[in-house]
Write a protein that binds this DNA or RNA. Sequence first.
DNA 1: CGCGGCTTTGATGTTCATCAAGTAAAGTGG
DNA 2: CCACTTTACTTGATGAACATCAAAGCCGCG
Lengths: 231, 231
Amino acid sequence: MNSGNIKCDCEDCKLKSLFFSHVTVDELIDICEIKEERTYFKGDIITKEGDSINEFLYLKEGLVKLSKSTDEGKDQIISFSKPFDFVSLLSVFSSDTYQYSVSAIEDSHVCILDLNVVKNHARQNALFTMDLMKRVSEATDKIVLDNLEIRRKHLKGRVAHVLLYFANYIYMKEEFELPISRREIAEYIGMTTENVIRTLSEFRKDKIIKIFGKYIQIADKKRLENISEFG
Amino acid sequence: MNSGNIKCDCEDCKLKSLFFSHVTVDELIDICEIKEERTYFKGDIITKEGDSINEFLYLKEGLVKLSKSTDEGKDQIISFSKPFDFVSLLSVFSSDTYQYSVSAIEDSHVCILDLNVVKNHARQNALFTMDLMKRVSEATDKIVLDNLEIRRKHLKGRVAHVLLYFANYIYMKEEFELPISRREIAEYIGMTTENVIRTLSEFRKDKIIKIFGKYIQIADKKRLENISEFG
DNA sequence: CGCGGCTTTGATGTTCATCAAGTAAAGTGG
DNA sequence: CCACTTTACTTGATGAACATCAAAGCCGCG
């Protein structure tokens, strides 16, 4: 993990244009002055469940996973997030400590604001707070709906769902480097690693996908979609 | 479903004392004037997924379920809510239409405000909006955490979980009338009705619970807790 | 009274987890 | 840089967990 102070000068910062659309120029300067930007590398833990929350984070670039550990030390993956899904928002306004862990599954840039400063602005600027709320709602809606979808599928449908998720939603391509391990797929869809691998192998044998390690190429999308919807 | 106008005169209205703790007297009067109260009977649908959202609802009394239909017409139950869990908050600020259905599983009283009026207040009163956000976050945290817990259990653990949920969280008693059918338990925990019934019968044979139709009495809570944690 | 929905139990087969065992890849210390 | 350890990946065999199908009793309701 690499840390450093960078000024709030990113021309295309969506935080300004989108997230802070209802913040005045003075407020924006105020916020920018305290902004810190950090780089996390693949595998780094960004926030850890149980830790106290005193920063407000948003993902500027990269890809992260949201997860929780069971008592037996196994992980359950709740969701993946790319920039503007603003995962860190989840517990920020309901708890003093993180309910979930967030870790980078690709090299990621995170912008960090002091939580008290953000909360102060929220207390004074209702439109800003409404923007925040909209984002919290959207993020959680997505998590809940995605979970329901996975829940009603079988092993093969779930694996197909994950592949299509990365193809359609994350990389917008039929071929990509899978950013997560087989085990992480399993932790996400609630199946065993072995069966995830078996299913991927089967898809390969049936010429639905091509696999070289982490590299995935979707060869027959129609069929994969069929399997996802349920086959 | 029974409808009628009632003045905002409930002495113990938690909406006032808790939910609107940051609302001025004038605002409160404003809100109360447009308040409507409705009674829904067990089985009634309160909001239906797909319908447009133009009211702000909160549960004053009763018990409801939050659910979603699959394409094949089967239901998935997302959560149950008692007063102050404020289920209707979920999609209110992220969508124009309900993502989920809410229906009464016990006779329920619902207070209804015009959504535009509430949103207007939210736009002008940041503390009120923060209160709202806190509640949205708490409600969704609960849903996500509960879901993860169910996900990591097997059939028996899940059924035990549901029984303990109603005993500990809803009725605060070891004996109660189950407000939902066997099928609804199945829809909630993602198993088949038959296996839910089989599991309940097994618990009965093992003298962990007593069953008379919908009446449930937990006879051996320790063991039930053990099964829930996993056995 | 009969019909549909809820409940219950049993028999059967499918789906999936577990166990085992081996290969490949990646990190670690001398 | 190479031996060494660990972690990820892979496949097969077996059994457990669970869905599905079938049949029957029960209850409430029109």
